[in-house]
């Protein structure tokens, strides 16, 4: 299908992007790789009056490590994450995830900033941002991931706010990510990420509620010495899945338990 008409602008700086957003108002949208926005526009489910294409802005595609954090520029693409040796050292779970995002075309174009700003519960990185207490940096402020994801496709971003980077704590402990799909290039029916930080485990859930979810109850159970199976049994209070064309909610709840156990086993066996 063909998109509704829209204006297009390609700012050279974040300031210019912000002023364009103010000029065009709340119906303008920021676009980077376009891997989520363009499909919605093609179905005319999203009809922005203007697209502010930030891909020409310099300095947003860098990856830096300092003081125990890695900062990933908003325009860093999935394929860049896949190939980044420093991230492989400092944040291997994100590299693992990036290998499994979409297909080659999506990975060549889609950006981490786009995933974060879109706020899709099915976007793999959002769960890891949430569970690792990442910081989302914009032209206006710094958001804590835990306060960022508000509702379905709704984040704390204001309409003239542009995500410029995401800052993760360096996480080199044991980890694993499992994505259960009906097809290789499909959204997850359920995704489970686990990361060991110090002596505790962080757990994140993909596509199991309207927003990404942190497995707080599971984490607490693990911290209390529960077995993987007993901890996984707590996952029901961490998620809120709905039935859709992919699977029933009841199944997703069950699957989450199974995958939580398997993902924890994968992480511990891999070490």
């Amino acid at each position: 299908m063909i998109t509704a008409p829209f204006e297009y602008a390609r700012p050279r700086s974040v300031d210019e992007a912000q002023s364009l957003l103010n000029k065009y108002g709340s119906d303008a949208k920021v676009i980077a790789g376009g891997q989520s926005l363009i499909p919605l526009m093609r179905l005319r489910l999203s009809q922005p009056t203007a697209l502010i294409d930030i891909q020409g802005i310099r300095g947003l595609n860098e990856v830096r490590r300092d003081n125990g954090s890695v900062e990933i520029g908003a325009l860093v693409r999935h394929v860049d994450i896949q190939r980044n040796a420093m991230l492989r050292e400092s944040l291997p779970i994100l590299v693992e995830m990036s290998n499994d995002v979409g297909d080659n075309q999506v990975r060549n174009l889609g950006t981490i900033g786009g995933v974060i700003a879109h706020g899709d519960a099915a976007g793999d990185y959002n769960a890891v941002a949430l569970m690792l207490d990442a910081e989302i940096i914009t032209n206006k402020r710094r958001h804590q991931a835990r306060d960022f994801y508000r509702d379905i496709f709704t984040t704390a971003l204001e309409h003239d706010e542009v995500v410029t980077a995401v800052r993760f704590p360096v996480s080199t402990g044991r980890f694993a990510y499992t994505k259960f799909r009906r097809r290789l290039y499909d959204w997850a029916i359920a995704g489970v990420a686990v990361q060991e930080t110090g002596s505790s485990w962080r757990v994140g859930y993909v596509n199991l509620a309207t927003t990404p979810r942190r497995g707080s109850a599971v984490e607490a159970a693990l911290a209390g010495g529960a077995s993987a199976a007993d901890a996984a049994a707590q996952s029901g209070s961490d998620i809120d899945p709905t039935s859709d064309v992919r699977a029933t909610a009841e199944y997703k709840r069950h699957l989450t338990q199974v995958l939580t156990v398997r993902t924890l086993q994968k992480a511990t066996m891999a070490a």
């Binding site: 499909p39 179905l43 009906r182 097809r183 290789l184 290039y185 499909d186 959204w187 064309v245």
Partner: peptide, 27 residues
């Protein structure tokens, strides 16, 4: 994989895009 689904009440197609209709790939 494949199944065309409609909402029984409204008659709306639930599998109206290739995102929601499961054509498998070579994988």
């Amino acid at each position: 994989f494949e199944e065309v689904l409609y909402d029984d009440e409204t008659g709306q197609m639930l599998t109206g895009t290739m995102l929601d209709y499961f054509i498998p790939t070579m994988a």
